[in-house]
Amino acid sequence: MLPVSYYLIVAAIVFCIGVYGVMTLRSGIMIMMCVELMLNAANINLIAFASHFSQVNGHVFVLFSIALAAAEAAIGFAILMSIFRSKNNVNIDNINILRW
């Protein structure tokens, strides 16, 4: 058995890649994808611990997490559609009306 920390480190790296993407990328769709990355990193963590301790609770939690991720992605894309309708692109950079 691999040490559980290896899986945790992988999940941490994936999470940080997702964070970097959310902070940096310009297109809304790319940002949604990176959000999914972050969620999946959390799921990896859950499965790693569940498998390591041979508990089933972790798997159930992951099921719920995936379903909620899907729901949230749907809503997110619906919002992106509204933005696209008014601006004809989905560059999140340009939505800065609440600036100084």
Partner: peptide, 14 residues
């Protein structure tokens, strides 16, 4: 129920 709500919400917004 959450999935139902998400479905309806995204349908309406899109």
């Amino acid at each position: 129920l959450i999935l139902l709500a998400a479905l309806l919400g995204s349908l309406y917004m899109a």
